[in-house]
Structure formats: structure tokens, C-alpha cells
Write a protein that binds this DNA or RNA. Structure first.
Lengths: 140, 140
DNA sequence: CGCTCTTATGTGTATATACACGCCCTTTGT
DNA sequence: ACAAAGGGCGTGTATATACACATAAGAGCG
């Protein structure tokens, strides 16, 4: 009966995994002048219509104020446009044409990164097991 | 044959999981005035003897320069002491008595956090599956 | 109408992360 | 011995993350 086996520390393992995965995707995202996290936000904005900042943050499981700054950066780069919602409450976001163009350019790199992770994990089954585990942990 | 299913994006899922897990452990670590990441580094320093910064970073799967700043912070807080290695090459680190005391105070909180994650995942089997997946991804 | 309550957004501050770069000291080749 | 090479360390800069707090504006009520 092990006590305090830090190799089983969920924090350590989750952060190590996120660092490794982020470096992996970042290497490719850099080729089109963005970070992997920025790619994620652009994808989320393209998918969702008329979402407030809070709703978008919820969907990304991200702290709202973190998202505010990430999007502010994307606006400064001219990739995202914000609009006040008609009912006066809140803002929502959409891609600029430049943003859409850059996202299209990044998509093949994303597919490559996904494929490389799949190769690393060995099989589709392992891949899905990993995704499932990450999704469970995200709901903590 | 799905193309571009972003719910299967490893980056998104890994980062979401790390954010959720970090928030979980951070809430407890704050009770003793540290962050969860600082706890990890303290544990690593306590375990390893005579490790250079680079070796420690390697073991933590962390960028060396990231670790440099994390440890500098811990030194300013008086929790860690650095020493030049005798052979002139490199430094190594050890806990101050204050650091050891604080780490001891944090350990029960860590055990609680681990137990809560186990509860969330439902079973020991699920827990080990998640750890295994994270460790695989860390080796990317 | 004005007061309060709720909801939504943004800022201050601290920490974490990593790439590019520079510095210093040791080792090695001649 | 000295110059070149390499390893190890820290800094400059940019981004990411989140808690505490501040701000603003619609909604409901007397």
C-alpha cells in the first residue's frame, strides 16, 4: 500500500501532458504566425454564433478573464472582430476575413499534429482512451 | 469518416484538463500560501539529490528556463536554497527548513486533492487509466 | 422614477510557460 | 598555453492563466 506516490500525482501528470502537447502543437502553429492556443480560440469563434464572452469561456472550460485577454490579443492582430449584442447585453465575436484566411492556412497543420499524436499513441483505441480521460478530468 | 472533429483535438482537451486540474489543486494549495505548481517543484527538490537545473527540468518535463524562474521565486520566498556544485559546473537545490515545514503542511491537502480526483473518476481502474494516458502524452 | 439586484465585462496583480539570445566556465584540440 | 567548442545558466520578451476587484448596464420593484 503505497503512501504518497508522487508519480501518481494527477496535477503533475496533467500539467506535464499539457506542456508536452502544447509544445507539439505550438511548433506547427508558429509556421503560420500564431500559437496553438490562439488557434483553439479561432476555431471556437468560427463554430459558435452569437455567443457572449462568458458562454464562450464556458465552452472552452477557460476562465472568462483569461479569454478576455486572449481575444483582445486576437483583435489587436486583426483576426477577430467584436460586436455589441443588439439587446445591449454583452458582446460576441466573429472572425475577420484575415482571421478566416489564417485559420484555413492552419488547418492542415492541425491535422498533421493530430495525426502525429495518433501515431505516438499507437492505435485509434489508445487515442480515444486518452481523449476520454482528458474529458473526464476537464469536468473536475 | 469525420473530418476535423475539434472535440477530438488533443490540444484543447489536454489544456482544458490541465486548467481544471490546476484549479482543483490550487484551491487547496492556497490554504498554505502556495500554488500547486510550487508544491510540485518542492516535492521534486525534496526527492532528488544533487540534480542540476537541467536534470531537474528534464524530470519535470518542464522547459529549463521556466524552472529557473519558478525556483527563483521559491528562493525569494525562502523555501529553497541553491548551492553551486563542487565541480564548478551547475547548481543544485535543497529545501530550507521553512520549505520542508511548509511542504509537510501541504501534504495532507495533496492527499485530499488526489482522493477527490479519484472520487470524481469513479474507480481506481479509471484513475490508473487516466494517469497512463497523461504519461503517454507527456512523452510526446 | 429611482433603488437595488443581477449579469456582463474589464483591470490589477501574480504566476506560469517557452523561445531566442547572451554569458561564463570547462574541456578539448593543436 | 591558447583558441575553439560545448555545456550550463540566466535574461528579454511574449503569451497564458486565474483570483480579486472594479465598472457598467439591463431588470425588477416600490
Amino acid at each position: 500500500m503505497e503512501q504518497d506516490d508522487f508519480s501518481l500525482c494527477v496535477l503533475d501528470n496533467a500539467r506535464k501532458a499539457a506542456r508536452a502537447v502544447s509544445r507539439h502543437y505550438d511548433r506547427l502553429a508558429r509556421q503560420v504566425g500564431m500559437t496553438a492556443g490562439q488557434f483553439s480560440v479561432l476555431v471556437a469563434i468560427r463554430q459558435g454564433r452569437e455567443e457572449s464572452t462568458g458562454e464562450l469561456a464556458e465552452r472552452l472550460s477557460m476562465e472568462r478573464t483569461t479569454l478576455v485577454r486572449n481575444i483582445a490579443l486576437l483583435e489587436r492582430k486583426g483576426l477577430v472582430i467584436s460586436e455589441l449584442s443588439r439587446n445591449g447585453r454583452g458582446k460576441h465575436y466573429l472572425l475577420s476575413s484575415e482571421g478566416a484566411r489564417l485559420l484555413a492556412k492552419a488547418l492542415p497543420l492541425w491535422r498533421q499534429a493530430q495525426k502525429e499524436v495518433l501515431g505516438h499513441l499507437g492505435s485509434n483505441e489508445e487515442f480515444m482512451k486518452a481523449i476520454g480521460a482528458l474529458q473526464q478530468l476537464s469536468k473536475l
